[in-house]
């Protein structure tokens, strides 16, 4: 579904991603693991069209989305849930959700979609008319995820959803990712929380210094030590 071919990204003299390639197959949950500074968030932002590439190509279902503006990437069916959540602080939860689909034309079932999100995250229904700025970290993460799902994307990019969340909410999040995947969404998950990622992922990549250090189906990983070795090698 998503094919990343040899992309490079840099800020000034610093090269963050070097010739990075990987694929995300349809219907799967793919985890991209790596330590601080490995280039995980940069990869996500590059796919979403938020930062320019220095080289390489990105394809979505065979369609070239390299160097497309972010709204074109969105139209191709990719929704990002940013690590920093990027909510609209002065809007209510409901308005935030509605904006998730506002840029798509010809959507007539906004109310039904909002209802669907509320089913998935009952907490959001309770806080429907509160300002996004007043939500707790876990609620903000739910809202950001829900807002992305409003567009019914073909591919959901989840950037470190566990950042700043209490452990109990992390396990909640695992369930949510599984549920989302069961509804047919393809998920690319970026995580530092290896344990959590291994719980949900079908395939694991380890990113190190802007390149892939390990690529393995989840079923073939017997010992998590293997992952940590790849982090540090």
């Amino acid at each position: 579904m998503l094919k990343v071919e040899g992309i490079s990204v840099g800020y000034g003299a610093i090269e963050v991603l070097r010739d990075l390639s990987f694929t995300v197959p349809k219907g799967k949950v793919v985890a991209l693991l790596g330590g601080n500074g490995a280039g995980k968030t940069t990869t996500m932002n590059a796919i979403a069209g938020l930062i320019p590439l220095r080289g390489g190509e990105i394809y979505m279902n065979g369609e070239r989305i390299t160097r497309q503006a972010s709204h074109k990437v969105f139209a191709a069916g990719i929704s990002l849930v940013a690590q920093s959540r990027e909510l609209f602080p002065e809007m209510t939860v409901r308005q935030n959700l509605e904006l998730g689909v506002l840029a798509q034309t010809g959507v007539s079932d906004v109310v039904a979609r909002v209802e669907e999100i509320y089913e998935m995250f009952p907490r959001l229904r309770e806080r429907a008319f509160n300002r996004a700025a007043s939500l707790s970290g876990g609620e903000q993460q739910m809202l950001a995820t829900g807002r992305a799902l409003m567009a019914r994307p073909k591919l959901l990019l989840l950037d470190e959803p566990t950042t700043g969340l209490a452990p109990i909410i992390v396990s909640e999040l695992q369930k949510i990712i599984r549920a989302v995947n069961e509804r047919g969404y393809t998920v690319l998950l970026v995580e530092q929380n290896t344990k959590m990622a291994l719980e949900v992922a079908d395939h694991v990549y380890v990113l190190r210094r802007g390149g892939i250090a390990l690529s393995k189906p989840r079923s073939e990983i017997v010992d998590t030590q293997e992952i940590f070795d790849a982090y540090l090698s």
């Binding site: 280039g39 968030t41 940069t42 690590q83 920093s84 959540r85 602080p89 700025a133």
Partner: peptide, 11 residues
């Protein structure tokens, strides 16, 4: 002025 959202972060 906005209480949440710090923008794109580089890891």
């Amino acid at each position: 002025l906005e209480p949440i959202g710090v923008g794109v972060t580089h890891d």
